[in-house]
Structures are given as structure tokens and as C-alpha cells.
Design a protein around this nucleic acid. Structure first.
Length: 722
DNA sequence: GACCTGCTGATTTTT
DNA sequence: TCAGCAGGTC
């Protein structure tokens, strides 16, 4: 241990050997954050702290696995295995399973993913007779999720609602909540919310966990939302050994409820907290760091910090100007080849982009050039239709009350259960005031349902029951295989002309077998939880010999010798609608910052002059962020297919600092407090005030639909109404 | 109740 | 461009 400490810089060592009490570590990109976290945990273990009293929470499974591996390497697996380590969601799911009865759930509760939730809401909206134009199911899900993340109950939401829309959301929230309970199901947000509820309503349970967790660690703290923060405070209040590590400059999950206040409030809630800054960067060259730093300085909201490095200066970044997205992909591939020829392994190269859709031309170009690549993320295996069908069947074995799964599979494969039958079941459930499943079981007493349909339902329920009772007696994968065959799902997809679906199902059963092999005591319930909370990103092979293709979000926490960031264009990065709201624009800037700081030695940025978007070829402009990067660290390379000169100086504002057309008064005459304006998304609003100058000119508008918004004038596409 | 067709909106990001 | 949904037809 002493030797390990010797390898750390003073700030890192301070953090690792810090005694008891709240600790806030602001860790800049590449400053050895994970190292500090793992060493500190190892240090505590070395000092004799029992591993089962340490709780370490991460944001992704990947981060948790990596941390556990590193700690295993330091202290051995017997102790590392006993640590409580995982994502917020998986650790809380585990706690909730142990305490489910206290909340009126059974330990077999089902976890709904986003799609399940949206489906349930679509169902409820239809039941309320509300069309998607009034309230779209996924917008409703988003709104409810936001409320939940802020710990607002439906009662509170209803009380606070002022607009018809808010009232509707509150009503829907209530129905949704009741449905979840009736289904013995929780959505992602509930895993946090219900844990907090559990702690609030059962002080004895809280006390038990407080007593257990003497040390609590949180990685990527800037990504926590309000609910997570409250849970943390509750859990750590007994020993107050809460150690959080984060970097506000890398906060890229605001849209998911991540609340930057959690960093700022930490020192307020823990006045005796110690703040340690890790500012020495071990990852990137000086020039890459200079680019990142210059960029992030344009953000107004941030904790001041100065990253520095002893690494060499390195090369300037290369900006590739390309004709269109295919040309861009071709250029990227060419430079990948160039790097490879100079001894760079493919596995040391990553290509990053803003949206998953951008991966397609890149994949194609790689394939054509014979360059091995791995696509990280994108449509998860477990989100495919056929896999979700299979999962729905399996969920019902574990939790038959899950009406969402029933609705999904009742007529898959088609067995003559249509809208009419469903409607009768629903009516019956309402009449008898029972769950959907209860109504289903009593379908024989619903005369409105056709005899043949009743018979089909009865057989299905019986089949399910048979497999349910057989649950413990067969190997998991055998049971699943026979079950899916018996209900007709395998046969259904086997007959499909599209063979991929059937192959996916085979793969799926193989993953069940794999799980059963790895787990000491495999259960379907545990398997389902695993599937619900583990994304494919987590399983992305730590590959050796393939170029990694992934979104900027997925790249967080990773590093690569060579990084390409593609599509650095206005409307893509920043993404179109984000550019209009200052907070969102700053988040986009942080996203690019995250991308740049992934690079160790070489950085490439690229943009296309034309890009096909939703089927149409549109001219594309370079991202305004490019103009924020110091020119001396960038070398511009034109694709032979690109129009030279054009568009390059568009991002060099020194030529036209205050006369650039977007900022000039032309088109904005009449923009003054009191003016009525129209915004393409928010509709009509009233200008309250103006601030800033030139490029930074901002306007505060009150919209009827969304309330007050602070907008950057040069992006907002505001139209002044006379 | 099954199947077909046309429309719409998505292309943010994920536990 | 395309998938998924809604509505219409047989």
C-alpha cells in the first residue's frame, strides 16, 4: 500500500488517505479519478474496514465492473466480492427486493423499461380518450419521469398544476402509479423513488442500512439527479463518510434529470466537507488540453479549475472538411488507415458522433475498407421486438400480475385475441374492481367474450401455470426453451421470412444458458433484473483490434490514443433544438468537451458541407463551437470532394466579430422588452429583457407554453411579431 | 379478427 | 428513410 501511495501526486494522495467525514473530489478529465477512487477503497480495506460496510455507486454497470476489477487486482477477489458496488439502480433494486413487502410489492416485482412505461401510458391515454396530439405518450412519460426524479408525487403534482396540460399529466401520473402497483411493477425512476419512500416510512429499515454502510462512494457525481442525491444523504447521514467524485464540466445528462446543484449544494449540506481538486491531467497532450480548455471556458456555469499536464505538446488537431456524410466517412477511414500504417492498432482508435444514426455511413465505409470495427450501444439486443416478446413471456412466469406483458403477448403469435376481447377484459376488470390478471383468470364468467377466445385464454393461463410450478425443477435455459416453444413464440418467428428474428431468439436462449452457468444460484427473477438494468454498452468487449464506433455519451469515462469526432456541425453538435436554450447549449458544449478530452495523442474533428437528414440532402454549416477553438492548435484538411474555402471561415469570427449576419440587428429590429415574438418550438412569447453583446446576446422570453426561457439570440430563430 | 396501407414523426443522449 | 401506429378493408 505504501508503495502505491508513492505513485500518486499530492492531491491524489490526500484524497486516498483522507480520514473520515464528507469529501468532495472535483476531478478534471484524465486526472486519475478512477485510480483515486479505487485506491481509496483499497486503502480503507487495508486499514481494516470490512468490505461489506462499503457502498460504491456508479452511473453505469461498466464503471462498476471496472472499479471492481481494479480493486480485485489490489486486494484480491475475496474481499472485493463483498463490497456493495453497482449502479444506483441495481443496488437499489437489490434493497427493494429484500424489503419489497414493506412497500406492498413482492420480491418478484417487474422492472419496466422506457418502452414498457410508454406503452402503459399509451394504453392509459387511450382509455382516457386522449389523442396523441393532445398528449403524446412518450412526452407524458418524460413529464412524469421528471416529476419523479424531483421527488414530486402525483398528489403534489396535482396540487401544483396550473395549466390544463399539467393537470392532465398529474391525472395520468396518478393512474400510471396505480397501474404500476397493480402490476407489481416499477419503472426506472421508481427504483430510486421507492427506496427513498421505504427509508422515509420505515425508519428501522433506514437505520439498518445507515448502520451497514459506513463508507459511501459516488462516481460521476455530476450525473446524479435529485432523487439520487436525497437517497445518498439518507444513507450516509449516520457515519457521514460520503465521498463523491465528479466533474461539472462533464455533466451531460441534464436531460435525464441530472442536477448540477447536487455538486454546488454538497458544500452547503455538508459544511465541514473537504474539497480536493484533481487538476493534473495524465491523459492528453498539451495541445488537446488547450483545445478542451478554450472550449469549456465559454460556459458560464462551472466550477473554476485549471487543468494542466506534463505531457508533451503533441500535434495540432486535424479538422477534416468534407463534402457530405459519405465523404466524411471515407475521409475518416482514410485517416484511420494512415494511422494504422504508422503502427497504431485499430483498437486504439475511436470514432465518436452525436447521434446513433450517424454510425451508418461510418460502418459502411469501414466494411468496405476492411477495417474491423465494433459498434458500441445503438439499438440494444434486448430492445428488439422478438426479444421483448420472449422477455414478456418470461416476466409473466415470475410476475403474472404484469399487465403490460400480458397485453404484449396475448396475441403474439396471433391466436384470435383481438381488440374486442381486450376491451371486454378491461371492462370486466373495472367492473369487478380487480387487476387485469384477475379478470383474465375469470374470463369464463365474461359472456361477451367469444367461446373460442375464452378457450384460448384458458389454455394459455394453464400453460403458464404449468411452467410456473415447474420453475425450480429444470435448468433455466431448458425451461425457457420449452416454454417459448410451448406458447408458440419460437414457431411463430421460425416461420418468419426474416430469419434474423429467429436467430436472435436462439441467441437469447443462449444468453439465458450463459447466465445460468455463471450465477451460483440462478433464478429467473435475478436474470430479468440483470437484463433490465444492463445495457449492451456495458457488455461491449474491451476489444483489442477493432475501431470503436460510439456516441459521445457512450464515450464518457473512456480514453483512446486517437479520437475522431464527426459531424461537428450546427444542428448536430449542438443538436438543433438545444442551440436555442442556453442551458442546453452549454450541455452540448460539455459534450464536445467530453469528446475532446477522450483523446490521448491525436484528435480529429470533422464536418460535412452537406448532410442527408431525414431523407433529404441539406446544406450543413460548421458548428459554432469550432470558432471557440484556438486556431493555432488546429490544422484544416480539405477532402478533395469538399468545396475549398467555403464554410471554413464561417467559424473564424475574428474576420467579422460583430458584423456576422446572425448577430446583426437585421432581422431582429424591434427585439426589445415587451415585444411579442414567435419561436419555432415554444410558440409565441413576450420578451422580458435582453442582455449580453454580439455573439453572446441573450433574450429572456416568457412563453405561454413553457414559461420563461433564456435564449441565445443568434440561435433562437425568433421572429418579432408586429 | 387478420391483414394491408398510408401517415407521421423520429435523428439526441440511457439506467 | 424507415419503423411503428392507426385506421380501413375483407
Amino acid at each position: 500500500m505504501e508503495e502505491l501511495l508513492y505513485t500518486l501526486n499530492p492531491a491524489q494522495r490526500h484524497a486516498v488517505t483522507f480520514g473520515d467525514g464528507p469529501l468532495l473530489i472535483i476531478a478534471g478529465a484524465g486526472s486519475g479519478k478512477t485510480r483515486v477512487l479505487t485506491y481509496r477503497i483499497a486503502y480503507l480495506l487495508w486499514r481494516g474496514v470490512p468490505p461489506e460496510t462499503i457502498l460504491a455507486l456508479t452511473f453505469t454497470n461498466k464503471a462498476a465492473d471496472e472499479m471492481r476489477q481494479r480493486i480485485t487486482a489490489l486486494v484480491g477477489s475475496s474481499r472485493a466480492q463483498r463490497l456493495w458496488m453497482g449502479t444506483f439502480h441495481s443496488v437499489f433494486a437489490r434493497i427493494l427486493r429484500a424489503e419489497a413487502e414493506r412497500l406492498g410489492y413482492t420480491p418478484d416485482y417487474t422492472i419496466y423499461d422506457t418502452e414498457d412505461s410508454t406503452g402503459l401510458l399509451r394504453f392509459l391515454l387511450r382509455q382516457l380518450g386522449i389523442g396523441p396530439h393532445v398528449l403524446d405518450p412518450s412526452a407524458a412519460r418524460h413529464a412524469i419521469s421528471r416529476l419523479k426524479n424531483q421527488l414530486i408525487s402525483w398528489q403534489e403534482a396535482a396540487a401544483a398544476a396550473t395549466t390544463p396540460r399539467e393537470r392532465l399529466v398529474a391525472q395520468l401520473y396518478r393512474e400510471y402509479d396505480q397501474q404500476l402497483r397493480a402490476n407489481n411493477a416499477m419503472d426506472f425512476d421508481d427504483l430510486l423513488l421507492n427506496t427513498i419512500r421505504l427509508f422515509h416510512h420505515h425508519p428501522d429499515v433506514l437505520a439498518r442500512y445507515q448502520e451497514r454502510f459506513r463508507y459511501v462512494f459516488v462516481d460521476e457525481y455530476q450525473d446524479t439527479n435529485r432523487a439520487q442525491y436525497v437517497a445518498l444523504r439518507l444513507l450516509s447521514s449516520r457515519f457521514r463518510n460520503l465521498c463523491v467524485v465528479g466533474d461539472d464540466a462533464q455533466s451531460i445528462y441534464r436531460w435525464r434529470g441530472a442536477d448540477i446543484r447536487n455538486i454546488l449544494d454538497f458544500e452547503r449540506d455538508f459544511p465541514d466537507a473537504t474539497l480536493i481538486r484533481l487538476e493534473q491531467n495524465y491523459r492528453s497532450t498539451k495541445r488537446i488540453l488547450a483545445l478542451a480548455d478554450a472550449l469549456i471556458r465559454h460556459n458560464r456555469h462551472q466550477i473554476p479549475k485549471q487543468l494542466w499536464t506534463e505531457n508533451p505538446d503533441g500535434e495540432p488537431a486535424t479538422l477534416l472538411v468534407c463534402a457530405d456524410e459519405r465523404d466524411e466517412a471515407a475521409q475518416v477511414v482514410e485517416y484511420i488507415r494512415w494511422e494504422h500504417e504508422r503502427g497504431r492498432r485499430y483498437g486504439e482508435i475511436a470514432v465518436l458522433y452525436r447521434t446513433n444514426a450517424q454510425s451508418q455511413p461510418l460502418e459502411e465505409a469501414c466494411r468496405r475498407a476492411g477495417i474491423p470495427y465494433v459498434l458500441v450501444g445503438s439499438l440494444s439486443f434486448y430492445q428488439r421486438k422478438e426479444i421483448k416478446d420472449a422477455l414478456a413471456y418470461i416476466r409473466l412466469l415470475v410476475n403474472p400480475a404484469d399487465s403490460v406483458s400480458w397485453l404484449r403477448i396475448l396475441n403474439v403469435p396471433p391466436r384470435g385475441i383481438g381488440a374486442a376481447t381486450l376491451e371486454h377484459l378491461r371492462t370486466a376488470a373495472r367492473q369487478w374492481n380487480c387487476s387485469f390478471f384477475d379478470a383474465l383468470q375469470r374470463c369464463d364468467s365474461i359472456p361477451e367474450i367469444r367461446r373460442s377466445a375464452r378457450e384460448t385464454l384458458r389454455q394459455l393461463i394453464e400453460l403458464l401455470h404449468r411452467f410456473r410450478t415447474a420453475l425450480g425443477s429444470y435448468p433455466l435455459e431448458v425451461l425457457v426453451l420449452e416454454y417459448l416453444e410451448a406458447v408458440g413464440l419460437l414457431g411463430y418467428y421460425r416461420g418468419d421470412e426474416d430469419e434474423e428474428r429467429y436467430q436472435n431468439l436462439e441467441r437469447f436462449i443462449a444468453t439465458v444458458a450463459e447466465y445460468a452457468e455463471q450465477s451460483p444460484a440462478p433464478t429467473l427473477q435475478e436474470y430479468l433484473q440483470h437484463v433490465s438494468l444492463v445495457s449492451e454498452i456495458d457488455q461491449a468487449p474491451a476489444t483489442g483490434e477493432a475501431v470503436m464506433l460510439m456516441t459521445l455519451h457512450a464515450a464518457k469515462g473512456l480514453e483512446f490514443p486517437v479520437v475522431f469526432i464527426t459531424g461537428v456541425e450546427d444542428g448536430l453538435l449542438p443538436i438543433a433544438h438545444a442551440a436555442r436554450v442556453l442551458e442546453e447549449l452549454e450541455e452540448e458544449r460539455r459534450l464536445l468537451y467530453v469528446g475532446i478530452t477522450r483523446a490521448q495523442h491525436r484528435l480529429y474533428l470533422s464536418y460535412a458541407q452537406y448532410r442527408r437528414r431525414w431523407g433529404e440532402v441539406l446544406p450543413s454549416r460548421p458548428s459554432p463551437f469550432l470558432s471557440e477553438l484556438p486556431a493555432e492548435h488546429i490544422r484544416i484538411e480539405y477532402s478533395p470532394n469538399a468545396v475549398p474555402g467555403a464554410g471554413v471561415f464561417a467559424h473564424r469570427p475574428q474576420a467579422s466579430a460583430d458584423t456576422s449576419p446572425a448577430v446583426s440587428d437585421d432581422g431582429f429590429s424591434g427585439m426589445r422588452p415587451g415585444a411579442r415574438v414567435r419561436h419555432p418550438v415554444f410558440g409565441i412569447g413576450l420578451v422580458e429583457s435582453l442582455s449580453g453583446h454580439g455573439q453572446e446576446r441573450r433574450v429572456l422570453v416568457r412563453f405561454a407554453t413553457v414559461g420563461r426561457k433564456l435564449l441565445l439570440l443568434r440561435y433562437a430563430q425568433l421572429q418579432v411579431l408586429e
